[in-house]
Design a binder for these strands. Sequence first.
DNA 1: AACGCAAGTCAACGATTGATGACAACGATC
DNA 2: GATCGTTGTCATCAATCGTTGACTTGCGTT
Lengths: 214, 214
Amino acid sequence: MTGVQNGEASKAVADGPARRRSATATRAALRTAAAFRFGKYGYEGTSVRDIAGDVGVDAALVYRYFGSKEALFNDVTGAGKIFEPLLQEPVEAIPDWLCAMLLGAPKDGDFTHPVLSVLRSSGRDEAVARLRADFSEVFSTRLAARLGGPDADLRAELLAAWMLGTSLVLTEIRPPALRSAPDDKLEKYLRSVIETLLGPTACDGVTPQVGEVD
Amino acid sequence: MTGVQNGEASKAVADGPARRRSATATRAALRTAAAFRFGKYGYEGTSVRDIAGDVGVDAALVYRYFGSKEALFNDVTGAGKIFEPLLQEPVEAIPDWLCAMLLGAPKDGDFTHPVLSVLRSSGRDEAVARLRADFSEVFSTRLAARLGGPDADLRAELLAAWMLGTSLVLTEIRPPALRSAPDDKLEKYLRSVIETLLGPTACDGVTPQVGEVD
DNA sequence: AACGCAAGTCAACGATTGATGACAACGATC
DNA sequence: GATCGTTGTCATCAATCGTTGACTTGCGTT
């Protein structure tokens, strides 16, 4: 929108040059481009013309297909609960899943954390409210129920907060030590925190001790 | 900017009705209002007229006093390193300081986490770069040096990530269990994580065990 | 080949944005 | 009380925003 950020179309369009005259393909391409733009520049920082330009299409199509800029934003940020995949795992596998997700986080600058996408686009009260609702339902209720033990809801929320912060720092800040640390060493530290928050029952055996890594 | 958010002037102007004809007072009021707006709505979500309107002054004054909207933003987000206060504490007091800071986080919606203020205003590459630099200098370098032990830089960054995530969830998401938990119970959980990341040497005595709180 | 609908373009609208420079009101100094 | 620099206002600019409706182009059907 400011004219400085260009050449992102290659990232967003994601398919070959011959996609013309296909409504579903254009819709999908618009959604992809919108997710990328909204995530990177926020709601106010993204113009409808930017999104359409990424796809190589006129801005008016956004209104034909989605109705309004806000509807497109809600469509993109609301598609599928953000935190949902965590709950597909059996309880014992949650630490493994968390580690895999955090270690697998893209370390280049082109990725934007989906939670940050919403948080970044403030003023969008509906999206923030939905984020809050998602968070509470997934962590405070469902994950807590599966965790069990005392203060399960509190522990679940604290675990979520830790995960969110770690993920955010890994993908957005990318500080030197975290970026250069080998996966196995980093994983030991991650697991020690997970175990602390989840309680010993959720971990699968040994208790890694901070300070005796490597 | 959208015209929906009004009546925030009382929060930002912060001084009595008789402040006219004082350049320094007006400058300060503009800065306060700008910090509030930028924090809550992001850079693109805030207009110069919004800020000036909060102070009850014409938008042209922003340009007289700060030169441009971007200069005002940099002035506001760059004043004082965001993470600096942490380093003023002696090493042994860091857990106490962290707990106090997290427990003292405002739980109403009018506060915006300063880190989120910057993250929310993306596209402002200079501000994001400064955030990154601040983070690395404070945590990866200076805090790590004071922590000592193996992987001090890594542990410092992980601690910072945890702190950021917890602070963010406390102030922005405000999930039910975290909001209603009594301070002393919450503190026990916080300390157990801090101890895990900082190592036993940094904690002052007993080892609180998750699961036997209350 | 002609038709008709769907996909995409185009030009334009009113509003708002960041920014500028000329102008008016205030308050101290002489 | 006239002077003068400071403080604040006003009108306005060009650009860009979201959005709309009329238009053109392509493609499958008959």
